[in-house]
């Protein structure tokens, strides 16, 4: 299993998701041993779907470049676009990239309900790591308290590491999802 690195262009349209996901899956399947790929096939597929959905919903641009890297330990899927930078809401303030101090010091809660919490932990002015906390299952709960936003949480839970980077020089947003195989 050699190291491979391939780029694929995603044109932002819901009509393109199905064929694009299959194209990326084919690249990965050709380069990752089935014993390593099959147990992670659901994760790989859902991560690609969610990155596509995220691109269409939030980037406000027409296309993004997906970078696929595989080796004997990891499948790495990155999405790069030159659309709107990721933003965080902290204490009713919108924090945009590049972040400014002191907001880079503490993880910011992105979403929280009775089942889980998703956090963004800045590691520099231009990069953050998504982390999640699984809550103990409540004995009873009110479904009305459930949130309806799952995209980033799904990627964070499927991956060994999930990060966002903002390249100031090229004004590029890079979401990188790393799946351990």
């Amino acid at each position: 299993m050699d190291y491979i690195k391939k780029e694929v262009l995603f044109e932002h349209s819901t009509d393109n998701i199905y064929s694009f996901v299959n194209t990326v899956i084919d690249i990965i399947r050709e380069n990752v041993h089935p014993e390593k790929y099959e147990p992670n096939s659901s994760a790989v597929k859902q991560v690609i779907i969610e990155l596509c959905t995220n691109a269409i919903k939030h980037s406000n641009c027409r296309q993004s470049i997906f970078m696929i890297e595989t080796d004997h330990l990891f499948i790495k899927i990155s999405k790069a676009d030159s659309g709107l930078p990721f933003s965080l809401i902290c204490s009713n303030m919108v924090l945009s990239f590049p972040l400014t101090l002191p907001y880079t010091a503490e993880p910011v809660i992105i979403r929280k309900d009775m089942l889980s919490t998703l956090l963004a932990a800045p590691v520099s002015m231009n990069e953050l790591v998504f982390k999640y906390i699984e809550h103990d299952e409540p004995e009873s709960y009110d479904p009305q308290d459930l949130l309806e936003h799952y995209g980033l949480l799904i990627i964070a839970k499927h991956t060994f590491e999930f990060t966002y980077q903002y390249d100031e020089n090229s004004c590029t947003n890079i979401f990188k999802a790393v799946i351990r195989i």
């Binding site: 597929k45 009305q144 309806e148």
Partner: peptide, 21 residues
Amino acid sequence: VDYVDSSFLGALVSSLKYAIS
């Protein structure tokens, strides 16, 4: 259905909340 994305899942949860109400 071949796949469900987070947006549709959100719609499903929203529908459940409405149904329960």
